[in-house]
Write a protein that binds this DNA or RNA. Structure first.
Length: 106
DNA sequence: CAGCTGACAATAA
DNA sequence: GTTATTGCCAGCT
């Protein structure tokens, strides 16, 4: 918390790593916790640069609209949805997440 | 040194 | 209600 300038991603890793199961956080939401309400893209960029060595539940990070992140990120569009579904996340008829139920608030 | 890109978000037409 | 555009932050070329 004080002067953690190791990198903007580190800050994102902390937040994403604190997302409980059955909950999801939006890019803009995480950015807001960091103090950057307009850094939604920066959060996504951090995830992209995030090594899997951290085991970040990036599948729990979705868009503010409830849409899942671009499928090409995980390699297949079923991956993220299956993981979230296994976590206990409920999907709407549109295939979007019920943010009102699973939107995690720091 | 300057400009570009990118796993988004919000607003306008 | 849907589609298009602009703005945002930080790292890269």
């Amino acid at each position: 918390m004080s002067g953690n300038r190791e990198g903007f991603f580190i800050r994102v890793y902390e937040i994403v790593g604190r997302i409980p199961e059955g909950k999801v956080a939006s890019y803009g939401g995480i950015a807001r916790m960091l103090g950057c309400p307009g850094g939604a893209r920066t959060v996504g960029w951090a995830m992209r640069s995030a090594p899997e060595d951290m085991k970040l539940p990036c599948h729990r990070v979705v868009k503010a609209t409830g849409e899942l992140s671009p499928s090409h990120v995980f390699g297949d569009p079923e991956i993220q949805r299956s993981m979230l579904e296994a976590e206990g996340i409920t999907f709407r008829a549109d295939g979007t997440i019920d943010m009102e139920r699973h939107l995690w608030q720091g």
